Simulated assay, not measured.
Amino acid sequence: MTHNSRWAFALAVVATGTALCLSVLAGWQRGGTLPERLVWIALGVVLVVCAHLLPALVRAAPPVVRALAAALWAACMASACYGHATFFLLAQQHAGEARAQTVTAVVPITPSASGRNLTVVMAERVAVTRQLQFARMQRCPRDCSSVRARRVMLAARLDALDAEAEDIRRLQATDDRVTALREALRADPVTVRLAALLGTAVTRLDLLAGLMFAAVLEGVACLLWVLALESRHTVMGTTIISPVVAVPVVPDVTTPVMESVTKPDRELATVSYKSAPAAQVIVHDRDVRAVDDAPDVELARLAMEVAAGRLRATVADIRRHLSCSQARAAALRRQLAELSATA
């Protein structure tokens, strides 16, 4: 494994581990009882792993399997992003509540002295005002001291009610300011300013940001696993030689040849050619070594695979298909290009 492939593998493991942690936390928060939480966690883990590894595992599969895997991969990605967005929104909500709790230490909210609300105070003020008006309209024939005392008492009571109402209004204004400050602290500062700039709601922008973070994480993890497994497959593929090689033979050429070659350090290798539209060349060898002395066979095989649509004429695909070196794959790619140009 090369240095770059090691880095790709390490980053892929870190990205998948992060996504799994998000799925575990989101499943734990979304479930009510313990069995429900465990099921949510298991579902999130399966979806994340499938979303990360499916693109790397089905690269060499037939087209029908790749199409089905692409549909399942899209569903897994959407489900994983939904779960991650749930975690991001709940985390933002918890952080906002923690920030809002710090406001009480800065602006304390104290109740009024009487503990009554403004509606009760204003109702009593109306009653006292009516009584004061009646006392002022009252006429006394002889001694007016009691009437004057009642008037003074009602006026003082009215002033006290006015002061109490003013205190309640001041406390309500303070409460409104604290409530507004708490609401402002519940939202992320960057999200609030960005929502004001874009002219949209803060909650909508929070949802879009959560989905974006989840999609970026899932996409990066998928790409890293593709790179990591591709590097491992390429390195391992250089020592694995397929024992069966199928090449096309021109139907008009009917020259059967049987050749036996005996070597001191190797077992008997028998090569048989048959005249048929789908003839095969079968090589049996215990050492399973590369057949570098048959470039025409490899070129014919690649041409047949490319014509059938089972292989792309790229250096990476040729290298993976034949398990050969980079230089050999590049040479075969040039020969294929020349062959298609002459055709």
Rank of each mutant, 00 (worst) to 15 (best):
Q326G: 01
D317L: 05
T270M: 13
P63G: 03
A331L: 09
Q29F: 08
A100F: 06
R289C: 08
L181W: 04
G32R: 08
I241K: 04
R333I: 06
E305A: 13
L208Q: 12
T234F: 06
M236T: 14
G27Q: 01
R99N: 04
V253T: 12
F9K: 09
D293Q: 11
V14D: 13
V14F: 12
T16E: 06
T2L: 10
A149Y: 11
D296K: 11
S340P: 02
T129H: 08
A70D: 10
V250F: 07
A307Q: 14
V24D: 02
P251L: 11
A80W: 00
T119Q: 14
T239M: 10
E36C: 02
G44Q: 02
V281M: 08
T33A: 07
T174S: 15
R151M: 14
T2F: 09
V45I: 14
L47R: 06
A184E: 12
V128T: 06
L302M: 04
V45M: 12
V64K: 07
H321R: 12
A80C: 03
A127N: 12
G31Q: 00
A127Q: 15
L299K: 01
R286T: 13
L34K: 09
D265V: 13
V14C: 08
R30P: 03
S5H: 08
V24S: 03
F9P: 02
T104A: 15
V257P: 00
A165M: 04
V103D: 00
R30I: 06
A294P: 00
G27S: 03
S275V: 10
V152S: 10
L302P: 00
A331F: 10
A163Q: 15
A184L: 05
R37E: 00
S114D: 03
V49E: 01
P256N: 10
A300R: 09
L197M: 15
G210K: 00
E183G: 07
V283P: 00
L132C: 04
F87T: 03
A160E: 01
T102W: 06
L336V: 03
Y273S: 12
P251A: 07
V288N: 13
A78H: 02
Q29W: 09
V128N: 00
P189K: 05
D176P: 02
V202Y: 05
G17L: 02
I168C: 02
R266K: 13
M1E: 11
Q92D: 12
L224W: 00
R136G: 07
V297R: 01
A113Q: 09
V253Y: 09
E338I: 12
G219D: 02
T86Y: 04
C50M: 10
R130L: 09
V283H: 01
R142D: 14
V245K: 12
P111L: 15
I241T: 10
G96H: 00
R328P: 00
R139V: 14
L25T: 08
R37T: 00
V253D: 08
I240R: 14
A228I: 01
A307L: 12
M236P: 07
D292I: 10
V261R: 08
T262K: 10
R59A: 15
D285S: 13
C21G: 12
A173W: 03
L118Y: 05
R320A: 07
E259Q: 11
A246F: 07
T102A: 08
H94R: 15
H321G: 01
T270L: 15
V64T: 12
D206G: 05
A195M: 05
R232E: 09
A155K: 05
G309A: 02
A316Y: 05
Q335L: 13
